[in-house]
Amino acid sequence: MKASAYGKHIGCIALFLLCPFILTSYGVKLASEVLIMAIFVMSLGLIIGFAGLVSLGHAAFFGLGAYAVALLGNHWENTYLLLISALVISGLAAFLSGLLFIRSSGAYFLMITLAFGQMIYAIVYKLEDLTGGADGMAVVASPNLGAGPIDSRLGFFYLTAVAFLISYYFLRLLIASPFGKSVRGIKENESRMTALGYQTRTYKLAVYTISGMLAGVAGALYAYFNQYVSPDLLYWMFSGQALIMVIVGGVGTLVGPAIGAGFFVVLQNYISSFTDRWPLIMGLIFVLIVLFGKGGIMQIAALLWQRFRPQRNSKPAQQAMAKEGNGIESVKS
């Protein structure tokens, strides 16, 4: 990266951290939720967009992370310990399930992950003594990184903001690294990767596990955020929502899924304020996106930007965008 690129990043981060000063208190709370969802959706975007593994059971890892904080939080107070527990538990679940699933692909993989997610859901739902069953359970633990409890909305925003930035830059490094490039190669052409000498399953399993860990961290943050967890967090509808956020944001990009998450969280909050028919509306959005959506938000934004920006040498940028975010199309390649 050149110095100017560093400058841009630092500028963006600064703007981002200044957000709370232009938002209402409710807005700050919503922004925290957006950031948590963004981490979750980025984790799913990683396996869909870069590894070509389309999962419909990803909420299981998010939910496990959330329940880890809720259940272990009854015994432990240390925030670091709880976050790491969430990461380890979700990561372990992803690793073990991945060992079994990773050799299937496409629709088969999707079906098996869906069944797996619903199994975790059913277990949490049925273990009433422990989890409160359908009623869910309150989260006792409150976040404290060592400098006193974080109990204000503003404080929590900064906690999630830091978590988001760490996740984002971690994933950025990951996808540019030898490991990330290899995963991309496997999505592109697994048989050639094998012929080149790559143990493709190991890579897929590793990226699936990393993705599960990140989803677990997002779930843990959500437990702190919401102070309450319920089996809905593991339900396939939630996995599906995350999937559509990835697609709306743009498959094969890193920022796309985060933007998709923001778009949906805000939309859901807005719509839920005057109707209970959110599932219906979400279903319609699914159908409309499939039938009419060509590429995600990132693609559309790139086209608009292309159209309305001052005329400079903008062609390469557009080509780059077109190459990056082909929405649904680029999942399969």
């Binding site: 990951l174 030898p178 490991f179 490039k181 592109e188 050639r192 990767m193």
Partner: peptide
Amino acid sequence: FGSLTVEENVQLAVNACKPHRFHFL
């Protein structure tokens, strides 16, 4: 690797036997 560049293709091939092929940071 049809949608990657020529350079990325060759890099993947070169990297396949390098000890750092699993590095991720």
